[in-house]
Design a protein around this nucleic acid. Sequence first.
DNA 1: CTGACGATTCACT
DNA 2: GTGAATCGTCAGC
Length: 214
Amino acid sequence: MIYLVAEIKKLDNSFYDRKDVLRIARELLGKIVITHFDRKRSSGRIVETEAYHGEVDKASHAYGGRRTRRTEVMFGEAGTAYVYLCYGIHHLFNVVTNKKDVPHAILIRALEPLEGIPLMLRRTGKARLDHTLTRGPGNVSRALGLQTLHTGTSLTGDQLYIADDGFRLRKDEIGVSARIGVDYAEEDAILPYRYFVKGNKFVSGPKRLGGSGG
DNA sequence: CTGACGATTCACT
DNA sequence: GTGAATCGTCAGC
């Protein structure tokens, strides 16, 4: 069998450095996240993202310009990983966008596994590949081996990066909704900042919200 | 130093 | 649908 492999191109700073975090969140759908730790590769295609709109977004850790040791990385250079611990258990992986001092970030919520599936199974303690392996932001980070110690890692390096292999989604394949788990954010809780691939079984969220599309 | 809590997940009813 | 797990972060004293 012959596989035609399109050129795979690592996304560079010009992708992350832009102002429109919603557009970047949408464009990240279909891209591939790769981790390459200890000569072991694992990767998956992004099928769900959420945008966090910095200082003006009540759902963002950087709301109101809140700068702390944890959130400082969001105020740094675009194309950096922001990984933090949630509920004392889950490591959530975000991509920092926009220029220095503008704390935009995009949460990677779900992937379709590609390479290193045995490795991802080992990391997550799962026996078989199913839709739960990389469904939800906690599972994504676990499968890729990402932890809080990776916060601040450049996405233009060789250990953790995002690539474009030429895969494209049609506009009608992309769903948009409110973000998940941000009820505390008052009026910003209902902003349509979540993007997902309609009908993809790795997409998270309650029931219909993401899965069946529409 | 202390207490409250979270951009979640999973087991169980 | 409900509730527990579990700990770094952050504000407040």
